[in-house]
Amino acid sequence: MRQHPDAGGDFPYWLVAVFAALVWAFWQVVTQDIYLDVLSKLSRGIWITLQVSVVGYLSACAVGLALALMQRSGNIVVRQVARGYVEIMRGIPILVLLLYVAFVLAPALVALWNWSAGYTGAEELRTRDFPFVWRATLALVLAYSSFLAEVFRAGLQSIDIGQVEAAEALGLNRWQRFRHVIWPQAVRIVMPPLGNDFVAMLKDSSLVSVVGVQDIAQIGKLTAAGNFRYFETYNVVALVYLTMTIALSLALRAFERHLKRNDR
């Protein structure tokens, strides 16, 4: 029987081609001094990129799940607050939100803290005490939590209502129904889009360079401005991002296959 093109059973020839290109690129890096010099400088930014991506994504997942549950609340005020947050954040470009958080929201939060410190006796802060790396992470959390909220909401709504009613008839309370019936099934449904959003956040983390955070993109820009070797510098920058995203994508696909085998 002829296999449908969308069945996903084709041998990944594209991966072989990409792997060969990566091997060739890494060979250029390790055999030429200019590439090694650029890579050594970028290594400092790799950890910042991973920190922003991982911390931001985990925080966005927590906020997104809370928003999804709020949208299913029986309280109309809670539902409307969650819906309003999601729609507003999804309507603002991430770059604009990043600049707004870095230069408007962060100083406002510091001012609010200092105002409350007059009543609580806490130590006052200066605006520069709020590092830009955390301002950038906060912006990514605000942006991606709105997207992840819709992913979680779709996953929760996909569970058959009959199963929930059966669990309720067995005497399970709301938390028990969520923990034992809804969540185990929903998490398998939302795993692929969650993985895609993690890859997207890893790439979008390069936007934090616009506020001076020393990530891969920012260090690459400064390195190119200093050595005027734009071709070599941005080749290494692209190679580092490509290596991370492809490795992450393959790991996520392997995890999805593992989940499918366990479901059989």
Results as ranks from 00 to 15, higher is better:
52 V>D: 00
54 V>F: 10
55 V>M: 14
57 Y>R: 03
58 L>F: 15
61 C>S: 04
63 V>R: 03
67 L>A: 05
68 A>G: 05
68 A>P: 05
69 L>N: 07
70 M>S: 10
70 M>K: 01
71 Q>W: 06
72 R>A: 09
75 N>Y: 10
75 N>V: 11
76 I>R: 14
76 I>P: 00
80 Q>V: 09
81 V>H: 05
84 G>Y: 08
84 G>C: 04
91 G>W: 07
96 V>K: 00
96 V>F: 13
96 V>S: 06
98 L>G: 12
108 A>W: 15
110 V>T: 06
111 A>G: 10
112 L>P: 05
112 L>M: 13
116 S>R: 09
116 S>L: 14
118 G>M: 14
121 G>C: 07
123 E>Q: 14
123 E>I: 08
124 E>I: 07
128 R>L: 14
132 F>Y: 15
135 R>P: 08
137 T>R: 01
138 L>V: 14
138 L>W: 08
141 V>D: 01
141 V>P: 02
143 A>M: 10
144 Y>W: 06
144 Y>L: 08
144 Y>K: 06
144 Y>A: 08
145 S>G: 01
146 S>V: 03
146 S>T: 03
146 S>W: 07
150 E>T: 00
150 E>G: 00
150 E>P: 02
153 R>A: 07
155 G>T: 05
156 L>H: 13
156 L>V: 10
156 L>W: 11
160 D>P: 05
160 D>I: 04
162 G>A: 02
163 Q>K: 05
163 Q>D: 09
164 V>F: 09
